[in-house]
Amino acid sequence: MRITCIARVAAGLIAWAPLALFAGSGAVAAPAKPYARMAPVDAYLMDRGQEIALARSAAPRSISRDATVLVLTRTGYETAVTGTNGFVCWVARSFSGATDWPERWNPKVRAAGCDNPQAARTITEIAKLRTAMTLTGHADAEVAERIKAALRTGKIPPLASGSMCYMMSKSSYLSDDGGHNLAHVMFYVPFKDGADWGANATGSPLFGGNYWFYSPDHQAEASAFPPLSVLLVGVSTWSDGTPAAMPSM
């Protein structure tokens, strides 16, 4: 169960919209939110060299050594290393994604990912925009409208076929739930859910979730965005080649 929960979180961490399977029935009063508000910005920042190393650890060295690397600053992500292979490695923070995730303001989250060229043109750009606007004090509604406008006008291009991300860092921290990490790769697909791929079915190696929101209570809001899902497959090694536990449903 621990690995399953982490997989559900990880399925949305680059998109930052973990599976709605986390949502409770509401029959029991929910405990006080441990991360009710944003921590001081310094709590989310890292030493620049350490952040570059963590970002590169998302993918095997054969990929990440030639990738562009982003680092977080007080006003958003900036390019620390310009790569040559089109991949973009970066360390996501808890507020880089879904606004309804319970751990949205968790300062411990350090989710290393390496987007391939197709994903970098769309997914990375969405996360960069969302992060920059959040750090500079914009309301969630403003952020959502800016993302919609960027997608509508082509400032951020539509998702390309074959978009995917490596999340194989041994040193990531994805969530307070369970063991905090999971070696996996993710695929971004332009449809509402992963049923056509068998995602989340008993015994299936695929986990899936909506990109835009954590909870199914936001169907109306999600429908205002282009259909976008995240599909996750656990892998048996970390990026350095050492064994990693495999997820199970």
Rank of each mutant, 00 (worst) to 15 (best):
R2V: 15
C5R: 15
C5Y: 11
A7I: 00
A10T: 09
A11D: 13
A11F: 03
G12T: 02
A15Y: 06
A17P: 01
P18Q: 00
A20C: 09
A27K: 15
V28N: 11
A29G: 14
P34I: 01
V41R: 06
V41L: 09
D42L: 08
A43E: 12
L45N: 06
R48A: 09
G49D: 11
Q50L: 03
E51I: 00
A53F: 02
P60D: 05
I63G: 06
R65Y: 03
D66Q: 13
L70D: 07
T73A: 02
T73N: 04
V81E: 11
G83M: 10
G83D: 01
G86A: 04
F87D: 04
V88G: 12
S94G: 10
D100K: 09
W101K: 04
P102M: 05
E103N: 03
R104C: 07
A112L: 08
A119Q: 02
E125T: 13
K128V: 14
L129V: 00
R130K: 11
R130I: 01
D140W: 07
A141Y: 00
V143A: 03
I147S: 07
A149D: 14
A150F: 03
R152A: 15
L159E: 00
M164F: 14
M164C: 08
C165P: 01
M167Y: 09
M168C: 06
S172D: 05
S172M: 14
D176A: 13
V189L: 15
P190T: 01
G194T: 01
A195C: 04
T202S: 14
G203L: 05
G209V: 10
Y211T: 05
Y211A: 10
F213V: 00
D217A: 10
H218L: 09
F225P: 05
F225I: 11
V230A: 14
L232N: 01
V233M: 14
G234D: 11
V235E: 11
T237Q: 13
P243D: 00
A245L: 13
